[in-house]
């Protein structure tokens, strides 16, 4: 239907993941008391960024297969 949905999914996960990871690196550690002292922004931001990259790779692989 003209748009590979894997690209926007990957793009959104990377955009949100990077925002979280950067904020996690810059934020005051005391805000993580409520999340069991885990820097949940940095950890989850990196997971989402990795997940987004996998979607973009999947999309590229599908394009190559079609070609």
């Amino acid at each position: 239907m003209g748009l590979d949905i894997r690209k926007p999914i990957g793009g959104l996960l990377i955009a949100v993941g990077l925002q979280l990871a950067v904020y996690g690196m810059l934020s005051d550690p005391s805000i993580y008391k409520r999340s069991m002292d885990i820097n949940v922004n940095l950890a989850w931001g990196l997971v989402l960024t990795g997940g987004g990259a996998l979607f973009l790779l999947w999309s590229r692989r599908a394009e190559k297969t079609v070609r």
Partner: peptide
């Protein structure tokens, strides 16, 4: 509100 800090 209880578990999540700003960001997440």
């Amino acid at each position: 509100g209880h578990y999540f800090p700003p960001g997440i």
